[in-house]
Simulated assay, not measured.
Amino acid sequence: MSEKAQGDRKDAAVTIACVQMEPQVGDVSGNIGRSCAKIEQAAEAGATLVVLPELANSGYVFSSRDEAYDHAETAGTGPASTAWSELAQRHGLHIVAGLAERDGAALYNAAAVIGPGGYVGTYRKMHLWNEENLYFEPGNLGFPVFRTPIGRIGCLICYDIWFPEAFRLLAVQGADLVCVPTNWVPVPGQTPERRAMANVLCMGAAHSNSFFVAAADRVGTERGQAFIGQSVICDVSGWPIAGPASRDDEEILTATVDLADARRKRNWNAFNQPLRDRRVDVYDTVLGAEVRPGWF
């Protein structure tokens, strides 16, 4: 049976590692090597699940669609997927990694989900940011929840977290944890003295949906575009339990959690539970989304 078809956890205690690193556009082999070294480091620290940034294999700021295509790979069989799968098997890990994905002539900003048994599945970014629209197709796989031996994992990528509907559609499918490979950039009003707005969005989503959120950002400046770091792991109450990380430095955040808390601690009092209290008599359960096979 594939991992995607499995739903029972072997062990609810999961050590999440968010790898904050600096991929470099134009250096695919170097990006793969550096990401593998970070995964090894996280595994040595006891990680069960490792989250890498958005487009970890390729870098982010492309000069043309041809360059983006040249840096992309087929999910599950390309060089980054293969290298990450080998590490997942060797260390008994699950990995969620941002990936420039090539599917025939189409390109996607994707996240590959990999387990000890190999490739599990792909999430494709639904909401494209800025010049991503020049290179990538909008995601066409919906919001899948991957049922793995360690728990039910959903994925979003960067700008997706600005859409509460995306988080909610993962919640109503039973996600315990949402992994967010991301390349956050400064937003209007962002100053060094303020908490990153992206951190606030992760916290709010974890709180209002009663699940864990693990966001792995990148750092550095690429072709003039600065990135803000501040990776974070939030618990089911919405509070950070690791991070926010540095704005500038590579580091690995870790937190050990019981993913069962995503359901066990959902009741706030004798009357209120945020998913149960939805007014589905006014709006439908999946917010008008097409229900895909395997969602429920």
Rank of each mutant, 00 (worst) to 15 (best):
Q6R: 13
Q6F: 12
D8K: 13
K10H: 11
D11N: 12
A12T: 09
A13K: 15
T15R: 13
E22I: 11
E22R: 15
G26E: 04
S29G: 10
G30H: 09
G30K: 04
N31K: 00
A37K: 08
K38E: 11
A43I: 03
E44L: 11
E44R: 12
G46Y: 04
T48G: 14
L49E: 03
L52E: 00
E54R: 11
A56M: 00
S58A: 15
S63K: 13
S64R: 05
R65N: 06
R65K: 14
A72C: 07
E73P: 05
T77N: 09
G78T: 03
T82K: 08
W84D: 01
L87Y: 05
R90T: 04
H91K: 09
H94I: 04
I95V: 12
I95D: 02
V96I: 13
G98L: 00
L99Q: 11
L99I: 05
E101Y: 08
G104C: 06
G104W: 04
N109K: 12
N109I: 04
A110I: 03
A110L: 01
A111V: 06
G115F: 06
V120R: 07
G121K: 01
K125E: 13
H127V: 14
N130Q: 12
E131I: 10
N133W: 05
L134M: 15
L134W: 13
F136Y: 12
E137N: 10
E137A: 12
R147Y: 10
I150Y: 02
G151M: 07
C155Y: 05
L156R: 02
C158N: 05
D160S: 06
D160Y: 00
I161T: 12
W162N: 12
L169H: 09
L170Y: 03
D176G: 06
D176H: 15
V178N: 03
V187R: 12
Q190T: 07
Q190F: 11
T191N: 08
T191I: 10
R194N: 14
A196R: 14
N199K: 03
C202P: 07
M203H: 13
M203S: 15
H207C: 15
S208H: 13
S208N: 11
A214R: 02
A216P: 01
E222G: 06
R223S: 14
A226R: 10
A226Q: 11
F227P: 00
G229R: 06
G229K: 07
I233E: 08
C234H: 06
C234I: 02
D235T: 05
V236N: 02
G238W: 04
P240D: 10
S246K: 08
T256H: 08
V257Q: 03
A260G: 09
A260R: 15
R264W: 04
K265L: 15
R266L: 09
W268M: 14
A270F: 13
N272S: 15
R276S: 14
D281E: 14
Y283H: 14
G288L: 11
A289C: 09
E290A: 15
G294T: 00
F296D: 12
F296N: 11
F296C: 10
